[in-house]
């Protein structure tokens, strides 16, 4: 399995996080693959997580299965990016 995640997907995902969570774009741009999200960002409570999942579905055109809905998905920025890339058929 290749690990080619398009740069545009990375950019789009950072922009979506900034939009939905109201983060400064510079803060979202500074995320690394290891940056923790769920439990580390005060903006990200359970209601925000659900809103973020909905925004991900709208923006990237996939549907999350119920067993995929989990805080683990949001453990780090890298985990979320890999998941979105996988759902989109990359990587």
């Amino acid at each position: 399995m290749s690990e080619t995640i398009p740069a545009s997907l990375d950019t789009d995902l950072r922009a979506l996080l900034a939009d939905v969570l109201g983060l400064a774009p510079a803060r979202a741009a500074a995320f690394t693959a290891q940056t923790p999200l769920f439990g580390a960002l005060p903006e990200l409570d359970s209601m925000a997580v659900a809103g973020l999942f909905t925004a991900l579905e709208d923006r990237f055109g996939f549907v999350l299965e119920e067993d995929e809905i989990d805080g683990d998905l949001l453990e780090t920025y890298g985990a979320l990016l890999s998941f979105v890339a996988c759902k989109r058929g990359h990587g």
């Binding site: 359970s46 209601m47 997580v49 659900a50 809103g51 999942f53 909905t54």
Partner: peptide
């Protein structure tokens, strides 16, 4: 999203 938040 409301049901998902409740489930989480």
């Amino acid at each position: 999203p409301l049901l998902r938040a409740a489930a989480l």
